[in-house]
Amino acid sequence: MATDGEGTAGLYKDTLLAGLWRENPVFRLLLGMCPTLAVTAAVKPALTMGCCVIFVLVCSNIVVSLMRNLLRPHLRILMFTLTIATFVTIADLFLKAFQPEMSAALGPYVPLIIVNCIIICRAEACASKNALAISIIDAVGMGAGFTLTLCALAGVRELLATGKLFGASVMPDWFVPWAAMGMPVGAFVTLGLMLGLVNTITGKKD
């Protein structure tokens, strides 16, 4: 954890910002590639997926942080997975009950959050070593970073693949949708170009 902020408030702010940009899970850590590529064909499912991840991440970080002193080192991964699986199941049930359309659109990718590396990475790297407050802030930052990235990716793809945003037409009539952007190829190309852009901005040499 970076600790170049001043005092507790500085540390909190730093942790929050780390997830949003400096250690952005998708652009900088390259974690959670499966949902990044799979559910970003449209903004709405991407946003739903992001919210699910935030929920699971916050809950699992809270639980892991609370029991961090009780963890047996060789059983910790088991505990993490158990915790994550529980909250993912709850999120899945919630979607089925209150957002049936999104649940159908996301299909297997909600249950697959269980194996999303971001969550187990945060449990291992942050929550199992830090106090409750910082774990929550870390979870919110990381989750928000993930969600924003997903939405940015999905925005570009949905706009080009269908000419719509959130299902509403925004492009002029003469626009012919680029169907390929809605296919896996669109996901790979857009992600690649965005990674390139981020690397250019941060001045990282190829």
């Binding site: 029991m67 009780l70 963890l71 047996r72 059983l75 505990m79 915790t83 709850i90």
Partner: peptide, 16 residues
């Protein structure tokens, strides 16, 4: 070694 695991399993099961 595993009391936490067992307790947690029960709690999480209940939650679900």
């Amino acid at each position: 070694q595993s009391w936490l695991l067992i307790v947690a399993s029960f709690c999480f099961g209940l939650l679900i």
